[in-house]
Simulated scan of single mutants.
Amino acid sequence: MALATAPASAPAQASPAPAPGESVSLVTTSGAATFKLCRNWVFTHTCREYGNVPVPARIAAGDSFEITFGSNPKTMWFRVKAVLLQDGRCLLIPKHEDMPAKGEDEPVDMLIVDPCRVLR
């Protein structure tokens, strides 16, 4: 009488790296980011970047945290709508329900985390 054996399972495979521009769910940071704040001035758009903005060590889409930026410090709540990968950096896109939608050609506010590591 032969004993039934379970079929050999396939070796575990690592998840492929996310593609550039792909949304990811959880990242780790060094604790600092650059805040890109854009404004629409009717005929032109301007963006300003503020460096060394403290951020949490782990960030996921849906998180909310307070950021402080600028030489005359300003504080605001940053609610993460999406985390995107681009050129080895993580772009944290804010959730602005109370602001009008921006056109496709308009710059977008974001936190830029470099370096960041994607967690699975």
Results as ranks from 00 to 15, higher is better:
Pro16Glu: 05
Pro16Ser: 11
Pro16Trp: 01
Pro16Arg: 13
Ala17Asn: 00
Pro18Cys: 08
Pro18Thr: 02
Ala19Ile: 03
Gly21Asn: 09
Gly21Ala: 11
Glu22Pro: 02
Glu22Ile: 04
Ser23Cys: 06
Ser23Glu: 15
Ser23Tyr: 06
Val24Glu: 10
Ser25Glu: 07
Ser25Asp: 14
Leu26Gln: 11
Val27His: 05
Thr28His: 03
Thr29Arg: 05
Ser30Gly: 06
Ser30His: 05
Gly31Cys: 01
Gly31Thr: 04
Ala32Gln: 13
Ala32Asp: 04
Ala32Leu: 15
Ala33Asp: 05
Thr34Trp: 07
Thr34Asp: 04
Phe35Lys: 00
Phe35Pro: 00
Phe35His: 01
Lys36Glu: 13
Lys36Tyr: 10
Lys36Gln: 13
Leu37Lys: 09
Val42Cys: 07
Val42Trp: 13
Phe43Lys: 07
Phe43Ile: 04
Thr44Tyr: 15
His45Gly: 07
His45Ser: 12
Thr46Gln: 12
Arg48Phe: 03
Glu49Gly: 02
Glu49Thr: 15
Glu49Met: 11
Glu49Arg: 10
Glu49Ser: 14
Tyr50Gln: 10
Tyr50Lys: 05
Gly51Met: 09
Asn52Gln: 10
Asn52His: 14
Val53Ala: 12
Val53His: 09
Val53Gly: 08
Pro54Cys: 04
Pro54Gln: 04
Val55Glu: 00
Ile59Ala: 04
Ile59Pro: 01
Ala60Leu: 05
Ala61His: 01
Ala61Pro: 06
Ala61Asp: 01
Ala61Thr: 06
Gly62Phe: 08
Gly62Ala: 10
Asp63Arg: 03
Asp63Glu: 08
Ser64Lys: 13
Ser64Arg: 14
Ser64Phe: 07
Ser64Tyr: 09
Phe65Ile: 06
Glu66Pro: 03
Glu66Gly: 05
Thr68Ile: 06
Phe69His: 03
Gly70Lys: 02
Gly70Thr: 04
Ser71Phe: 07
Asn72Leu: 14
Asn72Thr: 09
Asn72Val: 11
Pro73Gln: 12
Lys74Pro: 00
Lys74Thr: 15
Met76Val: 14
Met76Ser: 12
Met76Asp: 12
Met76Asn: 10
Met76Cys: 05
Trp77Asn: 06
Trp77Leu: 02
Trp77His: 07
Trp77Val: 08
Phe78Gly: 01
Phe78Gln: 08
Arg79Ile: 10
Arg79Asn: 12
Arg79Val: 11
Arg79Gly: 05
Val80Pro: 09
Lys81His: 09
Ala82Leu: 03
Ala82Ser: 12
